[in-house]
Simulated scan of single mutants.
Amino acid sequence: MIKDIPVFTISLDFELYWGIFDKVPLADRKQYFANTLRVIPEMLSLFESQQIQVTWATVGMLFAKDWSDWTNAVPALRPSYHDNQLSAYRLKEEFGRDGSLKDFFFAPELVQQIHQTPYQEMATHTFAHYYCQEAGQTVEQFREDLRAAQSIAKRQGAKLESLVFPRNQFNKQYLRVCREEGINAVRSNPSDWFWKQTVEDKLSKRIFRTGDAYLPLGKRTSYPLSSLKIEDALPLSIPASRFLRPVDGKRDILNKLRLNRILSEMTVSAKRKECYHLWWHPHNFGSHPVRSMADLKIIIDHYKKLEQQYGMQSMSMRSIYEYVTGR
């Protein structure tokens, strides 16, 4: 039986335009992603100075230098979604001729900076922002996607041991493949009903997921590490606790509510010797980068107080796996 300790973990879904291409036109988000590219080094500097372990679940396509390099890295077997609009592979035809746009699709220097920054874990968000619950795709296509992600990461000296499913489409049937392809830990969803089957994304679920960020509508978000199940041939599932919602530029009261909710939950977690798992996308800082970074500093400062008062520890997903399994 492992000893329960208070833990603070952060996982980030690093994807740039690959993460929203099927929802938002790129023309509407150019400044948004330009801000994102500038704010990520600020995050890294903060995490390093405060010794914060962070798991960067990175879309594999971001490792490529350009569209030519991307072409050489893609797997032969691609997802056969019934809805082709979900496929990231169609974007080359749409955007590949305009070299001025490549920074919204490729970030090899930034990926390398993350990999070389102390306390940061380079992880995967699949190669092609792969949707594991969408109709048409297969488990073998998923396997080839993971192999492509591992291959392109290996070029930068990175071994991917943790995974976050895009759009939180957690698929238990694919866990064995994850482990066979080198993944030891995956982020799973909270146990509340409004986090089940995110691919359906019904209005009622979205309302409750949003509301729970401000008011206690769901279950307690933290959990003891001893509750994590170690299963043979499967990666360790590490549930998320809270999504750090983007700054609302018009409603300060909502910003305060969401931030106070996170700080309060962190305190409860520390007192109960439980794990608190915070996550967001780096591009969520794109609309209001200065205010977003100010909020992040408040969260990190609060963690440092909990570290002093209750012995809370910062752990990446890989570190949690190693602690729970004794490796």
Rank of each mutant, 00 (worst) to 15 (best):
F104C: 01
P79I: 06
L160H: 09
K154R: 07
L101M: 11
I183E: 01
Q85P: 00
H115A: 15
H125E: 07
L215A: 12
V139N: 03
N168T: 03
T198G: 05
S191R: 14
G211S: 09
C132P: 02
N184S: 14
G99T: 12
V139A: 12
L91C: 00
Y81D: 00
D201A: 15
G211D: 07
T198C: 12
Y223F: 15
M122A: 10
Q85N: 08
T126V: 06
A135S: 13
Q137I: 05
A213W: 03
G136P: 01
F106W: 11
S226E: 04
E180C: 04
E94T: 13
H115G: 12
E134T: 10
S151L: 10
Q112D: 14
I114S: 05
L225D: 04
A185N: 04
G182V: 09
K219F: 11
K172A: 08
R147D: 00
S100L: 00
P79Q: 02
G182C: 12
E109L: 10
S222T: 13
Y89A: 00
L217H: 06
K92M: 05
K219V: 06
Q112N: 15
Q169V: 05
E93A: 14
G136E: 05
Q113T: 14
M122S: 14
N84H: 12
R147Y: 03
H125A: 05
A88V: 12
T221Q: 15
T198E: 08
